[in-house]
Amino acid sequence: MAPSRRTVRWGASVGAAAVLCTGGVAHANGTPGDTTTPSAPPAAPSGNANDQEVSASVTYSRIKVTQISGPTGGNRGSISSTDVTWEPPPCWYEPVFTPEQLKAFSEGGNPLGHVSPHTSWGGQKLWTDHYRDKKDAYSYKDGALDPVAGYDDYNTGKNGYFWRGVARDLADPDSYGCERVMFWQNAGEVPDVPNAPTPETLAEYAYDKVKVPDTEIELKPEAKSTVNAPTWVWLDKGTFQEVKVRAELPNTNLWAETTAKPVALHLNPGTEDAETFPASGDCEINDDGSIGIPYKTGDAGKTPPCGISYLRATDGEPYELTASVTWQITWDGSGGTGGDLPDGTFETTQNMNVQEIQSINR
């Protein structure tokens, strides 16, 4: 649950490293005094962890995403989970600064940057007090301010990184689960804290980055059908292929590959006055990536393995035929990990005009 807005007063017990938790900024230049949460969160710093720039904002992850296989051209879009309750992780921790980078940032001018997703420090004194001069800082934990021991000269000479929380959406109350003030971790180690990144974290992050091709089905007849005459639907072989996306978190040896495999095409004719073939409207995708069977001369009186028969003509307004592909999602990751994620869907809609059979009386 997100903490309520609050005012933190500096005192001898808190010191210059006071931390605001709710998107506030703590300033430490000049005489200590009241620090209040502004009405709106400050703009997130951007850039890389070099000199005066805070490494990328807390809503921007350093996770590197690469498409390993599958189509890359044409019209593509993101899949939607069939499990409406499922979402990618709201927050996790990532390595941000080396000792040298943090020193350059902290002592270069008037630094302003995040130490957690909802907490910014403004002014050199906050940074140098905690990360150079071993003074405690305070983070929000279990409804109270929790003291965090300071560091000696940014841990210069040690091999490792300072880690900070990253939030996918700062408005999500669950993003407050990564409010620990930026902390040290030795190189080659992943911190043992709640919401530390795992291969599954990366797999779920990659799920959100999978792009699949539009569902451009072939129709016969095209766009205009006749009442009670089946419309054949098919896709040529190879149209749909697996899409594999790899996600890696630098400086952690963590990686995962998320694979989306097309398994079925669902047809929704856009009206109850229609029949689908098969009756469920689910046309299986064959091993070669094809769907159904292409229409050929002489098939007019046959029932298609994948198709629609409209029972009522349109009257000015076309029916909206929706074709949605179900994608089965699996993943493999570092350390021999792997598993399943909720299926995803991607749909497209096209207009269908349906006419009555015309007859001539002689």
Results as ranks from 00 to 15, higher is better:
Gly157Ser: 09
Ser139Ala: 10
Asn155Tyr: 00
Lys125Val: 15
Thr119Ser: 15
Gly108Ser: 14
Tyr131Gln: 08
Arg132Thr: 02
Ser139Trp: 14
Ala149Gly: 12
Asn155Glu: 08
Ala104Leu: 13
Gly113Ala: 04
Ser139Gln: 12
Lys158Trp: 02
Leu126His: 12
Gly165Met: 03
Pro99Thr: 05
Thr128Phe: 02
Phe105Ile: 05
Arg168Gly: 08
Gly165Val: 02
Glu107Phe: 13
His118Thr: 00
Gln124Glu: 15
Gln124Val: 06
Tyr138Cys: 02
Ala167Gln: 09
Leu102Thr: 04
Asn159Met: 13
Asp153Glu: 11
Gln101Ala: 12
Asp146Gln: 07
Tyr151Leu: 08
Leu170Trp: 00
Asp142Phe: 09
Asp129Pro: 00
Gly165Cys: 07
Ser139Glu: 14
Trp121Ile: 04
Lys158Glu: 01
Asp152Cys: 03
Trp121Gln: 05
Asp146Val: 03
Leu112Thr: 10
Asn155Met: 03
Asp136Thr: 14
Val115Leu: 08
Ser116Gln: 12
Pro99Met: 01
Asp129Leu: 08
Ala137Ser: 15
Gly165Lys: 06
Ala104Asn: 14
Glu107His: 12
Pro111Lys: 02
Lys141Leu: 15
Ser116Val: 04
Thr98Lys: 11
Thr98Leu: 10
Leu112Ile: 10
His130Lys: 11
Tyr140Cys: 10
Ser120Pro: 00
Asp136Arg: 15
Tyr161Cys: 03
Asp153Met: 05
Gly108Leu: 05
Trp127Tyr: 11
Trp163Ile: 03
Leu145Met: 11
Ala137Trp: 00
Lys158Tyr: 03
Tyr138Gln: 08
Tyr138Asp: 03
Tyr154Gly: 00
Ala167His: 05
Leu170Pro: 01
Ala167Leu: 07
Asp129Glu: 14
Gly122Ile: 04
His130Leu: 10
Ala144Asp: 12
Ala149Asn: 12
Pro117Ile: 02
Ser116Glu: 12
Tyr154Ser: 00
Ala144Cys: 01
Lys125Arg: 14
Trp163Glu: 02
Leu126Ala: 15
Gly122Leu: 01
Leu126Lys: 12
Lys103Asp: 13
Lys141Tyr: 14
Leu112Asn: 09
Trp163Phe: 06
Thr119Pro: 00
Gln101Asn: 09
Asp152Ser: 14
Glu107Lys: 13
Thr128Trp: 00
Tyr151Arg: 09
Gly157Thr: 09
Phe105Ser: 06
Gly150Lys: 12
Ser139Pro: 05
Asp152Arg: 04
Ser120Trp: 10
Ala137Pro: 02
Lys125Gln: 14
Lys158Thr: 01
Lys125Cys: 08
Glu107Pro: 03
Ala167Ser: 05
Tyr154Leu: 01
Lys135Arg: 12
Leu102Tyr: 00
Asp153Tyr: 07
His114Leu: 13
Pro111Ser: 10
Pro111Met: 05
His130Gly: 14
Leu126Asp: 10
Thr98Arg: 11
Asp169Cys: 05
Trp121Phe: 07
Arg164Gln: 06
Asp169Thr: 03
Tyr154Lys: 02
